[in-house]
């Protein structure tokens, strides 16, 4: 816990200020990862992984929730270390694709302020048959949540906290 108080929040917050415009991505054949401050596009993500070889496409959309442990969340903001987060996303995507023999995989994570109910992450995977796609999608999300260098600030009526996925604890005051 720091003694720092919540000086500012949301759009004006230096922690969630835009570091780039548009989309930053790493792309190779059948493995696509990106970060963006803009709204996510589920259809575009599905289209990235569709193939005549794939009988199954699984799309996961992670959305921002309006509460944490019963307390009302007013909004969320994600910050990142983009070059490292992209590198980690790519490593995860490559290994999941190989392990589950996917046709293709695409992951995108949103940054900056995200309103409640909007998507913060999309994972699209395609495979010949559905079972591999279901499993790969779930495993991919768990890996991303554990490793990718993105940080969520949850803002409550009385200030913000930095969430940490690994402990599920109350978080550190922003």
């Amino acid at each position: 816990m720091t003694e720092a108080t919540a000086a500012d929040s949301g759009d004006g917050n230096s922690f969630s200020a835009r570091l780039f415009e548009g989309e930053k991505f790493l792309s190779e054949e059948d493995v696509y990862v990106s970060l963006t401050y803009d709204e996510l596009d589920a259809k575009a993500m599905m289209d990235r992984v569709k193939s005549p070889k794939a009988g199954a496409v699984v799309l996961f959309a992670g959305c921002t929730r309006d509460s944490f442990a019963g307390e009302t969340v007013t909004h969320l903001a994600y910050s990142s270390y983009p070059p490292l987060a992209l590198r980690t996303l790519q490593k995860i995507a490559r290994s999941i694709r190989e392990k589950h023999e996917l046709v293709a995989i695409a992951i995108t994570h949103r940054l900056g302020k995200v309103d409640i109910g909007e998507e913060s992450i999309l994972i699209a995977v395609s495979s010949a048959h559905r079972q591999a796609a279901w499993k790969a999608g779930e495993e991919c999300l768990e890996e991303v949540k554990e490793k990718v260098e993105v940080w969520k600030e949850e803002w409550f009526a009385d200030g913000g906290v930095w969430r940490a996925n690994r402990d599920g604890q109350a978080g550190v005051r922003v």
Binding site: G62, Y78, Y81, L84, A85, H109, S120, I121, L141, V144, K145, E146, K147, V148, E149, V150, W151, K152, W162, R163, A164, N165, R166, D167
Partner: peptide, 10 residues
């Protein structure tokens, strides 16, 4: 160099 706190993506 970067200091990397526990992550909270997703």
């Amino acid at each position: 160099v970067a200091i990397i706190p526990p992550v909270s993506s997703g």
